[in-house]
């Protein structure tokens, strides 16, 4: 065997334990690691980088932001039947008011109390699903600003429409003015009380029930349409449905009833002030 290279310097310390590394392999090792091809977390099949679903098993790879049910699976909450039942329990009060042509503020208090009992009965029946809705809300400043602007736009549009065609709109505060009630009393009675009762019923019991039957978006739209329908005014259905959509979204995003109650009360108060 013939030595082809210089004699190793026996005085120098031997190289580290590892075998000598060829220059090309060392160069490759020094390069940043290439990311592994994406694989499905469920079936490990190779998937395209931009895929939303796995082509092999069909499972969704990117989380679906719309698939949001805020009642945990192990909590017994209201279902679709309860949502319809609470709708008709609410509608029963509206029907009696309509049939008996009740406009006297003192008599209307009885109906407010009835609706409060209906709403609280729902909370009492499904406490684990509905009591958490009375916790502190999760708020963001941009979200609050967009919501306030959207609600103000709906209010502005409906006020302009009511002024253009007053025949088709009911003056809700007329009975209060005729009975000599103060503005503060009317604001509380027409603005705050219905906001509290309707939010517990529609964004509380009914929306929670619809979320068990439909996907998130469908549940919000359905609850908004039911909210508009219960007011028995085909002309007001459009703006009430839009308001219902906003209130439903606010309730789901903040995971609390307080912001939707506040927004609803502010909307009602604006209506009272515009009619006063």
């Amino acid at each position: 065997m013939t030595a082809t290279g210089p004699e190793p310097d026996r005085a120098s310390p031997p190289p580290a334990e590892a075998a000598p590394v060829a220059p090309a392999a060392a160069l490759v090792a020094s390069l940043p690691e290439e990311p592994a091809a994406p694989r499905c977390p469920y079936c490990t099949a190779a998937i395209a980088t931009a895929a939303t679903f796995c082509g092999a098993c069909g499972k969704r790879i990117i989380a679906d932001p719309a698939a949001h049910h805020d009642t945990p699976a192990d909590v017994r909450g209201p279902g679709g039947g309860a949502a319809l039942a609470w709708y008709f329990l609410t509608f029963a009060a509206v029907l009696v008011i309509f049939a008996a042509e009740v406009t006297d503020p003192d008599t209307l208090h009885g109906f407010d109390l009835y609706l409060l009992v209906v709403g609280l009965a729902g909370v009492a029946m499904y406490p684990r699903a509905l009591l958490p809705l009375f916790r502190a809300p999760r708020l963001t400043l941009p979200g609050a600003a967009v919501t306030a602007l959207a609600t103000a736009a709906i209010f502005g549009a409906i006020t302009a429409l009511a002024r253009a065609a007053p025949t088709f709109f009911v003056d809700m505060t007329a009975p209060y003015r005729e009975a000599g009630r103060s503005l503060a009393y009317t604001l509380f009675d027409v603005g705050v009380v219905p906001a509290v009762t309707e939010e517990i019923i529609f964004r509380g019991v009914i929306l929670a029930g619809l979320l068990q039957v439909f996907e998130r978006r469908t549940a919000v739209v359905t609850s908004a349409l039911l909210f508009a329908t219960v007011h028995v005014s085909p002309l007001s259905m459009l703006h009430l449905a839009l308001l219902g959509l906003i209130l439903g979204e606010v309730r789901l995003r903040t995971r609390s009833l307080w912001p939707s109650m506040l927004l609803h009360a502010a909307y009602n108060a604006a209506v009272v002030l515009s009619e006063w």
């Binding site: 319809l84 309509f98 469908t218 039911l226 329908t229 028995v232």
Partner: peptide, 28 residues
């Protein structure tokens, strides 16, 4: 239009609306 994607929900809302309108009509 909505029923194109959510036929069941739209049908339920139409039914509830019909009952509501009829009940108000009969009450008056």
């Amino acid at each position: 239009l909505w029923a194109k994607t959510q036929a069941f929900a739209a049908a339920v809302v139409a039914f509830v609306l019909f009952i509501t309108v009829q009940a108000v009509d009969i009450a008056s």
